[in-house]
């Protein structure tokens, strides 16, 4: 009997192994519980805040609720993290150097594998229960839905470049891995628009933050999905940041690679 078989591809195997390792520890269930509670709290908060202020921003209440839900559904893609930090911490990066595979592609494969588990166990169920939460999860139009997919792909690439840059900075400045990671997470959560739409920031901060690379990681795709911004401008800003961050990230990584190797990986 013929069995369907995955192509014999090293990156697919890597992704598959990383996906299998996701369920090794019970922490992932707690993470899902946290994410569910967070989205419930944020949805309630928006209803509480906007109930008397329907026209106080560029989005309707329904739009803000959709933004919040979709931000949680695609939380992993809007806040890209590879296993680079863990490899630094455990000193296992040298093993990855020895494999006949590209480093960024290896890390990407290790990142994408768990995404599949996450999508099946959390994102799809959350989308399915959206009507129960009183949220319409659909994009404003099919066209914007298609552009969202493009923008999400660009956001992931920008996130990967940021990951490379952060990794190089950790090595270059010889700083504690997790400390830098926590600072980055804290800053990115605020500046990217993943938690609150940038359009609702006071004192013009949202307009300012929209020019930063963090906005290209979350605000751009979510604003396209909910028609909170001009899709062409948002996509153009993502392309500009890609063109800037990738060459810079590769240069910075190469400049610090020797230091990393001399430390034993």
């Amino acid at each position: 009997m013929l069995r369907p078989r995955l192509p014999d591809n090293a990156y697919l195997k890597t992704a598959s192994m990383a996906a299998a390792a996701t369920t090794d520890h019970p922490g992932f269930l707690l993470t899902y519980a946290l994410r569910l509670l967070r989205v419930l709290v944020l949805l309630a908060l928006w209803r509480y805040v906007l109930v008397d202020r329907v026209n106080s921003g560029p989005l309707s209440l329904a739009g803000v609720l959709t933004y919040t839900l979709i931000a949680e559904v695609f939380a992993e893609q809007l806040n890209v993290r590879t296993s680079l930090n863990l490899a630094f911490w455990e000193g296992t990066l040298v093993i990855r150097f020895l494999r006949p595979m590209g480093l960024v592609r290896q890390l990407s494969a290790e990142m994408v594998g768990p995404w599949c588990i996450d999508f099946v166990l959390f994102s799809l169920p959350l989308l399915a229960m959206a009507p129960l939460l009183g949220v319409d999860p659909r994009p404003v139009s099919p066209g914007l839905g298609a552009l969202f997919v493009v923008s999400l792909a660009l956001a992931i690439l920008v996130g990967l470049a940021m990951e490379l840059i952060t990794g190089a900075v950790i090595v270059g400045l010889d700083q504690p891995v997790w400390l830098i990671e926590w600072i980055r997470t804290a800053i990115a959560l605020l500046l990217s628009g993943a938690l609150l739409p940038l359009a609702y920031y006071p004192w013009g901060l949202g307009e300012l933050f929209a020019w930063l690379p963090f906005a290209a990681m979350a605000w751009a795709p979510l604003a396209i999905y909910t028609a909170a911004g001009n899709p062409l401008t948002l996509l153009a800003s993502q392309l500009v940041w890609l063109a800037v961050l990738w060459p810079f990230g590769v240069w910075l990584w190469d400049a610090n690679r020797e230091k990393l190797v001399s430390h034993g990986g």
Binding site: R53, Y201, P202, L205
Partner: peptide
Amino acid sequence: ATFLLAARF
């Protein structure tokens, strides 16, 4: 995040 929301509204 809470501070920004409170400031805005």
